[in-house]
Each structure stands twice: as C-alpha cells, then as structure tokens.
Nucleic acid binder design. Structure first.
Lengths: 185, 185
DNA sequence: ACGGAAACGGAACGGATGTTCCGCCCCGGA
DNA sequence: TCCGGGGCGGAACATCCGTTCCGTTTCCGT
C-alpha cells in the first residue's frame, strides 16, 4: 500500500522534509508552514497533504534529531572513563544546540509539539542518571551534585539557544565549560 | 500641563498599569493588549490612548523592575566581601527571575521591547565588571573565569525562566548554585 | 445646569498564520 | 496515445493580534 504512490508524490514528500529540516534549523520551530513550502518550491496544500497538520511536520523533523541524541547517549554509556563520558556529553550537547535551533524546543516544551517523544525522553533521563552515578562512584563529582544539576545545566544551555543574539555560540561554549567546572570535584 | 487632565483619565491610566503588571507577571510579556484591557475593565482604545503602542506599555512595566535591579547592584557594590558580593548578586538575580516573569525579557532582548534600557544595561555591565575584578583580586575566582562567564551564567538563568515548566524555581535555584561552584576558585 | 472638549468603548482595519477548497495538471496503466 | 484519478498550486477561509476610527458618554469650568 505504502509504496504504490505516484513517483512525484514520493519525491515531493522528501523535498518537504528536507525544506522543513533546513527551515526549522535556521528559523526555529515556529517558522510558518508557508516558509517551508516556499523553500521546497511547492504549494502549501502539497505540504499539508503529506503532513496533515503543522504538528505532524514538526514531529517528523524532530524524530530524526531525537534519534541522533539517542545514539550520542549510547556512545557516552560505552565510555570507560566516567568523567569524560559525562563531560563530553555536555560538550556535544552544547555543540548540537549551536547548530540546531529545533532540537531544544523538543526538550524544553514537554507538552508542546514534542509531546510525542515522552518515551525517548524517559530513556534519555535514565541514561543520564547512569552517567552521573558512574561519575559519582569514581569520585569525580563535587559533593551534593546530582542528576538534577546536570539536567538543569543542559536546560540552561538549551534555553540560551533561543536568544536572538549573534554571539550565542561563544556564550554557550563558555556556559558549558562553566557547568563542567561546577560539577567537577 | 501634565496634571490638568481629567480625573477619570488619570485613574484609568493607573488601572491600566496595574492590570498590565498583573497580566504580564502571570502570562508573560507577550500577553495580548486585549487581555490587559479586559483585566482593567476598559476598552482597548483607552489602553492605547495612555500608551500609544504596546511597546510603551511593556516599557512602563519593565522600568519598575529595572530600577529594582539597579538598586540591588548598588548594594552589591557596597559589600566589603568580594565573593559574597558576586555570589549574592547571582543568587538574588535567580530569585528575582523566579518571581518576575517580565524582567528577563528586558535583559535578553537588547533590540526588542526593552531597547529603551540601553543606558541601564551599560551601567549594569560596568558594575558587574567591578564585582568580578574585585573577586579576582581577592583570589576567589577559578583560573580563567572572567566577566563574560558571569554574564553567560546570568543569561542562562534568565533564559531558563522562559520555560513553561512548573518546576522552574527549583531548576533555577540549582543552576545558580552550580554556576557559583563553577566560578569559585 | 449647560455646553463643549476630552475620554471612552467597541467595531473595524491590516497583516500574519494554520488550514481547506477547488479547478487544472501530470503520472501511469491500458 | 489516451484517459482517469490522484496530486498540485494558490486563492480563500478562519482566527488572532496590534492598532485606528468614530459615534457616544463623561467630566468640569462657567
């Protein structure tokens, strides 16, 4: 059923997805659907045929980013050095935020357009708890630091990404370093 | 000239301001003007007569908060203990963000509705530089930490305030503590 | 008490955005 | 090559928001 559609329809669906990726990354998740359609050089109706509502389109784009996040977390869990795993995770997260304006909204608005990712969020939280527990067991964490602190720090990095400033990249980098210093024993 | 206006006009102006304070505090600075008018039990035109544009209304509300910030910074400059001054400033800033949903947008959007506070912003930055320089001279700061790091941290706290989550207060508190730990020698 | 200027309320305008409608067009099977 | 039905584009509809217009009401000096 799924594969017996017209070839132009299939290719247009890809063009919409590509355009949506680019648009959301550059202008944020609130970018108008018309903007996506324009970038794809298609009519709005075509976008809506492939993604019945704006939320479906956003969800489709976010799914890819969330999956990338999941892979990254897997790698961190495989790291044998507890502090390097945790610290590197923070740094990669910061890098990702710098280059991708869409991802943070998936993390920042649990009830919003990204409500579909509750399961992945839970998995992510669990993995983070493991990373923190390992670093703590290895004595690399400051007294009193827990998973909530790491989570607060990541949220802060993500929230910073929303600012319209052009110096965001530097500010985010500094903040990530500052957070690592605050977590370290 | 200013005081020879009709009494109803003067009292309505106050009602608008009060309603704006309440509305913006509860719903954020993007709350519709109609909402302010409704809360004041006045027509929209009345709001617009006293504050020609939405920005003027926002600015009027923010001016009060900015002034409070200025007084707080003055107190920090009077503190004889450099680290306590800097650390306390961060904590008070975090507290203020928790209780005031409007203030951060004055700090986060230099070109936005709060463009009118450029002078105060400059003064604020200068005072912060002084606080950091003193703390550094007293040897209370970690190697490599500068005013930009403190500013990044405050920005992060302010940005966090924008999240719709109900656990913001705790998260902001933790973040503030984390930042202090990251700055300390 | 009265009259006019100032203030008021709410409908209306203009622009943005999500979504739907509909006539035209093109793919793909015969 | 021809035809039918799904696909397409863009205008149109509905909603929301900032702002303005204008007929009506209210204050206040005389």
């Amino acid at each position: 059923m799924t594969q017996m559609q017209r070839s132009d329809a299939r290719s247009n669906r890809d063009r919409v997805l590509t355009a949506a990726r680019e648009t959301f990354a550059a202008a944020g998740l609130e970018a108008p659907v018309r903007e996506v359609a324009r970038r794809a050089e298609l009519g709005v109706a075509t976008v809506y045929r492939h993604f019945p509502t704006r939320t479906d389109l956003v969800t489709a784009v976010l799914a890819e980013r969330v999956e990338a996040c999941r892979r990254q977390m897997r790698r961190a869990l495989d790291d044998t050095d507890p502090w390097r795993a945790l610290s590197g995770m923070i740094e990669e997260f910061a890098d990702r935020q710098i280059h991708d304006r869409a991802l943070n909204e998936a993390l920042l608005a649990p009830g919003g357009a990204a409500g579909a990712f509750a399961e992945q969020r839970r998995e992510h939280v669990e993995a983070m708890n493991t990373l923190v527990a390992r670093a703590r067991a290895a004595g690399r964490l400051r007294e009193g630091v827990g998973p909530e602190d790491v989570r607060a720090g990541l949220l802060a990095i993500a929230a910073l990404r929303n600012l319209p400033s052009s110096t965001n990249a530097q500010v985010i980098g500094r903040l990530a370093e500052l957070l690592r210093a605050g977590l370290r024993a």
